[in-house]
Amino acid sequence: MTLSPRFNLTVGLLAIFCLAAIIHILVVLSIPHNVQHSAYDNVAAYGPDRQFNLLPDIRPGEEALPDLDPAMKHATCRFQLDNGPVLFDASIPVSFWSIGLFNAAGEAVYSLNNRTAGAERLSMLVLTTEQLSILRENPPENLEDLIVIETEEPISGFALLRAYVPHGSRATDVDQALKAANCTGI
């Protein structure tokens, strides 16, 4: 079965590389399933679900969540569509704010900023297709004015609201506006 020592070595090396490639791919694919703290878990540390929780200011060594902008103030809200639709409602009196919706895996589902929202006030309804059809039978008055985000599955996830603080003197205003932001059912 053995042709020559060099042949054996070649077969051995090929086997090592093929197996290494398979293991490499398996390791990379398995990392997302084995992380200890996902962004969805981390957000829970700042307060109860289904309400906007103000994150502490971003300072060196005490960053609430990784990779946030120190020029902004942030508030997060965790939600599960299994428990009913979520209505985001906020009025933030600064020149720039944005909101990103992320699922439990940390993928962006939807995002908008105060220009694309088309109004000064953020009012956005997130719900499943099924919940929307139930809602349509007896629609609330302001359904036409809401930004409606439909998801196919009842996702769990979180929203991150970013508000620009143009100057230190505006910080308390922004804090108040973020604390007053709603993330509740209809």
Partner: peptide, 25 residues
């Protein structure tokens, strides 16, 4: 940080629990 991400960036972002700046932001 989107559903179209390649497996490497999915692994990097989930391991670091990084919340990306989404397209609309």
């Amino acid at each position: 940080g989107t559903a179209d991400a390649d497996p490497y960036s999915v692994a990097i972002y989930t391991r670091g629990a990084v919340i990306p700046l989404a397209n609309g932001e």
